[in-house]
């Protein structure tokens, strides 16, 4: 979503993005003229008249589970977004009985928070697991 019109979105997709992604952008390119939606989400920069790089993960209930906002010159990391969604899905599927510690990714162990785990995380989770 940006403040550009859908007409500009079409031009950008058809003339540049199709050269990066075969078939063009597969998801909706949203237009937010005037930054009205961006203002509600807190990512519209009124002075510059553009949106900041904000990324929101919204779960199936319409609840915001996470967000990240960067200034324009630095791009996001799509792998990290996907990792976070996978982690939120694990937590959701476990109905909140499991949690994903720092550095978790699919295949790594989860934690089951409860009285037995208090003071015992050091036994099952090592700091090296925070890194890939």
């Amino acid at each position: 979503m940006s403040v550009d019109s859908v007409f500009v979105h079409k031009m950008w997709n058809d003339h540049e993005l199709t050269k990066m992604v075969s078939g063009g952008v597969p998801f909706a390119m949203l237009s937010d003229g005037g930054g009205r939606v961006g203002s509600v989400y807190g990512v519209y920069d009124q002075d510059a008249g553009v949106e900041m790089r904000g990324r929101f993960i919204i779960d199936p209930d319409g609840v915001i589970q996470g967000y990240e906002v960067l200034t324009p010159p630095v791009g996001r990391n799509v792998d990290e977004t996907i990792r976070q969604i996978q982690a939120f899905q694990v937590v959701r599927n476990s109905k909140g009985t499991e949690a994903t510690p720092s550095g978790w990714k699919p295949g790594k162990m989860t934690l089951k928070p409860g009285p037995d785990l208090v003071g015992k995380v050091w036994e099952v989770w090592k700091t090296s697991m925070a890194f890939d």
Binding site: S2, E51, R53, R55, F56, I57
Partner: peptide
């Protein structure tokens, strides 16, 4: 699951 992304332009 929805990922909503804003970008400058």
């Amino acid at each position: 699951w929805v990922v909503l992304c804003f970008y400058p332009g």
